[in-house]
Design a protein around this nucleic acid. Sequence first.
DNA 1: CGTTCCGATACAGGATACTGCATCGTTCGG
DNA 2: CCGAACGATGCAGTATCCTGTATCGGAACG
Lengths: 196, 196
Amino acid sequence: MAYQSESLIAQAREIREASGVSQRALSERAGLTQSHISQIEGGRLEPGLSSFIDMTRALDLELMLVPKKLVPAVLGLVKAQATPDMHIHAGQPNDKRFARAERLVKKMKHLYGSSADLDRIDDTLRFLRRVNLSDQEMQLVRELIARLERYQASEQAAPIVRDIAQNLQRLRNSIAHAAPSEPRSAYSLDGGDADA
Amino acid sequence: MAYQSESLIAQAREIREASGVSQRALSERAGLTQSHISQIEGGRLEPGLSSFIDMTRALDLELMLVPKKLVPAVLGLVKAQATPDMHIHAGQPNDKRFARAERLVKKMKHLYGSSADLDRIDDTLRFLRRVNLSDQEMQLVRELIARLERYQASEQAAPIVRDIAQNLQRLRNSIAHAAPSEPRSAYSLDGGDADA
DNA sequence: CGTTCCGATACAGGATACTGCATCGTTCGG
DNA sequence: CCGAACGATGCAGTATCCTGTATCGGAACG
């Protein structure tokens, strides 16, 4: 349940961790208990609106109401602040993007032979294309596609391709099966290129 | 109480009223009850995060997490765009249908306990709601929902529920693993017109 | 008038958030 | 090896949400 709030909560958690604030420290600042926060972050509990506000305010964040139309713009703003080198083409309709990506995968299959990972990407893209993605989700997809494009011919493409496949699949799972108790949440919304 | 959320709730209310949406209409779209919404708006109740998200999403709004630093910027953006003729797609009979169905399932879970089949239905509905369904597909969904409604309290509900779950899942799978030969990219996913 | 839609209000019952502990396994620094 | 801090988990008890249903007074329209 509570699939709607997953992404907000995941964001809050990421930011908490990135700021090096422990659950206990946050609990004091926000006036909640540590056990409460742990359960919220773990998805075992759906916070009340005011609890969540307390929590995010203590992280120097504000919850804002934004018309859907403006979500990409706001996302751009926020992201620009977080990662200066990221740069968004706000233009293209999503359909085109997918078509392009699918063509790319096809080409790669052709050139390097089809691998399980490429198949997975292919499959997942075809699925995601039909879904009404939130702007946030679309943003993630966009990044992944861009990464694929960038590294398609690279020497170490393999682990990158695998990573992309994994990320896409995670997104798909989160949508297809609005999971109540998914063990791991947190698709990295920002640049985490830690692994690979 | 709940002084933190006051402003968000007030905003939501203003936008609802400005869009000419009644509490009852909103309650259907959001999957909440009218009485619930009234209490939230009146400040006599503090909504859960997910309730509030349901509510705002039904108003074409997104709840976003923004660094405090950027709040003025976002505020500017939103304000600048605040168009007088902000119209909501009041139509979407499909959305209504799904909201209704989801509530029905919730109620059934409540009454008879959640079964694997009900969970499956719940899950699948949440998925299908997000997808752009063809008329034919929507037709199928409509029938299944109607059937569920009809037999919800029947003695032999169990096998019927199972059958419905299976049918829905089959539909979902057929969408999730769309054949590559499907050229149907031709959905105009907006119908969106009537904007500036 | 009578109908219809509106928002506010009430109330019972069940679900669940939330507190305030206490504890566990792990990780990290000394 | 020890102790500290971390996050996860358990649990009893209370507060509150949320549904479902129903009613009410008011405004709008015929």
